[in-house]
Amino acid sequence: MKPQALTMLTLLIAPWAQAQSTIELNVRGSVTPASCTPALTSGGVVDFGRISVQDLSKTQRTMLKPRPIGLSISCDAATRFALRMRDNRDGSALVNSGIYYGLGLDRRGNRIGLYEVQFDPRRIQADALTQVYITDSTTGGRGWHSADLQMDRIGSNDMLLGFSDTLGSTAGPVPIRDLTATLMVQVVVAPTETLDTSDDIAFDGEGTMEVVYL
């Protein structure tokens, strides 16, 4: 099926002299007939339960045991897509990075910690593929890293995470109709000496996962 092209826009600059100067601006894109629906198990909630302050380091960051959550993506037809995530608690992560997301602030405005969402290709199934490989792009899909079996993290902005059927491929994601995966959520808590521990500190991490059509 041919993509529907968007309207071309031509920008004209009026001449100051007798010679006319023009410059063209081409606006391109396409509308895909397919759509994909992502879903997370447990209503998208990863609960780390109640954690004693005594189990956290006073002077160092504490990495908690990762917790799993299931992801499924169902498309109307085999579709080339990638994933990215937006941090709905932007600015509250301990580290300013495209792969780390914030856990919110405590009562005194201190940053509680951060979390990351890990994709392990060995825990991903897609259509009838015998093995799924992970590929990623840090250029918004203009170029892709070699697909491999290494664990990767979903990123934000121009960082895209996709899925391939060929080890070492740099062609980007392949068309997939149905995908299921077990993700691991890794939480890191700030040193307790930097937090207000006079009352409960509630994790308040929230992110929006987006399917990007390629």
Rank of each mutant, 00 (worst) to 15 (best):
V132H: 03
S169I: 08
L129K: 12
S146A: 14
G155E: 01
I134R: 04
I154D: 01
L129C: 04
F163Q: 01
G162S: 05
S164F: 03
N157R: 15
G143T: 14
A171I: 06
D152H: 15
L160R: 15
Y133Q: 01
G140E: 07
A171N: 14
D165L: 12
D165E: 11
P175M: 07
R142P: 00
T139Y: 10
H145K: 15
A147G: 02
L160V: 12
T135D: 00
G140S: 05
S156Q: 14
D178G: 08
F163W: 03
P173S: 09
R177P: 00
R153G: 03
T170K: 14
L167N: 12
V132K: 00
I134M: 03
R142H: 09
S146L: 12
T135Q: 02
Q131R: 15
R177H: 08
R153Q: 11
V174F: 11
M151D: 05
R177Q: 15
A147K: 01
D152E: 11
V132S: 03
P175C: 10
G172C: 13
M159E: 09
A171D: 10
S164Y: 00
T135H: 04
L129F: 11
T130N: 08
R153N: 09
M151A: 14
T138K: 12
W144K: 01
N157F: 09
L149M: 14
S146P: 12
T130R: 10
P173W: 02
P175K: 04
R142M: 08
T130F: 05
L149W: 06
G172S: 14
I154V: 15
G155P: 00
H145G: 09
G172K: 03
V174K: 06
V174G: 03
D152L: 11
Y133K: 03
S137V: 03
H145F: 14
S137E: 00
S156R: 14
R153W: 14
G140H: 07
G143I: 02
A171S: 13
G172A: 14
D136S: 15
T135P: 00
L149R: 13
G141W: 07
I154R: 04
G168I: 00
G141D: 07
G168Y: 05
A147T: 01
M151I: 15
M159G: 06
G141A: 08
G140L: 07
M159R: 11
D136L: 07
R142E: 05
R153C: 08
